[in-house]
């Protein structure tokens, strides 16, 4: 990625050793962050599990074997079913694996939507300034005042509850932090010489924003994206737990918890397992985000 390396923020690029690309520099520093490495291993493992679900899962996640759960009593974990079964005799491990697919996919798409909207609005606000900036800033402030979770719940209730709407709604209300961040970076940079030079050779505003300014804001945006994954996964879980997210029979870690709530004391593993998977995933993304922040921070020289 020569463009990114060349126009990369000089502060951060200064950390690179002779002949080292920016990405190689970030990776070298990230490797020293133990918690981030732990997170990366977990996320890689869960992602592979999600991608290869049809081959990895021991059973079909929807196959009901009522004889395993007589009179709706879930079967406790055992050798044949390491995570037990649910009240319909469905293999719980298989449901957790397929549920991970949904949770990670929702997280990824919702985060991408937030980052796109946030970057676009933040870039315009920071680059144009004036009334454009005023309007975007006020709008961001307003959106930050309304409790986000309730707004997401309310809007989800208006739409038909399917996985695509869940992704869109979570994404559409998560851009505010990124917008502020990108705006701040653009404000700092827009009057610098390289921008003026680009303008002098006749680059369009769009080109300046995308090719010259945005790469400089990349570092904090990458961190925000990682943390955004964590937030989006938590939101999906909460939404599905309340029954307004991913709908059964499709499994998501959130809606598995909703189903498990009725068996909290009778079959505690049904609640413990999906929640532990959510927590571990979110924790891993937070670790990675923290590691990336340190790795890309020019103030921290190792």
């Amino acid at each position: 990625m020569p463009e990114i390396r060349n126009s990369m923020n000089s502060k951060s690029a200064a950390l690179a050793r002779e002949g080292e690309t920016w990405l190689a520099m970030v990776w070298r520093r990230l490797k020293k962050h133990k918690l981030a490495m732990f997170g990366l291993v977990i996320i890689t493992f869960f992602s592979l599990m999600a991608l290869l679900a049809p081959w990895v899962a021991p059973h079909c996640p929807h196959e009901q074997r009522l004889e395993l759960a007589p009179r709706g009593r879930p079967m406790a974990p055992n050798l044949a079913h390491p995570f037990g079964t649910d009240d319909l005799g469905r293999d719980y491990l298989s449901r957790v694996i397929y549920g991970g697919r949904v949770s990670l996919a929702v997280g990824l798409v919702a985060m991408s939507i937030s980052i796109t909207i946030g970057s676009a609005l933040g870039s315009m606000a920071g680059y144009y300034g004036g009334w454009v900036d005023d309007i975007i800033c006020r709008f961001t402030d307003v959106m930050l005042c309304i409790p986000r979770f309730f707004l997401i719940l309310a809007v989800s209730a208006y739409l038909s509850p399917n996985i695509f709407n869940v992704m869109i709604v979570i994404g559409a209300f998560g851009w505010m932090g990124v917008a502020r961040l990108v705006r701040g970076e653009f404000l700092k940079l827009r009057d610098q010489e390289f921008v003026e030079a680009a303008r002098a050779v006749g680059s369009s505003d769009r080109r300046i924003m995308i090719r010259h300014l945005f790469p400089n804001a990349l570092a904090p945006v990458i961190v925000a994206a990682t943390m955004g994954m964590a937030q989006a996964i938590l939101l999906e879980a909460a939404l599905s737990y309340l029954g307004l997210g991913v709908q059964p029979p499709a499994a998501s870690w959130g809606n598995m918890l909703q189903q498990a709530q009725g068996y909290l004391t009778e079959a505690p593993w049904m609640s413990i397992i999906p929640g532990a998977f959510i927590s571990l995933t979110v924790l891993s993304f937070n670790f990675i985000g923290d590691g990336l922040r340190d790795a890309m921070d020019p103030k921290l020289k190792q």
């Binding site: 964590a230 879980a237 909460a238 737990y241 609640s271 413990i272 929640g275 959510i278 927590s279 937070n286």
Partner: peptide, 11 residues
């Protein structure tokens, strides 16, 4: 900061 609060509640 990573545990879903509703799950913590259930636990």
């Amino acid at each position: 900061v990573s545990i879903p609060n509703f799950w913590l509640g259930l636990m």
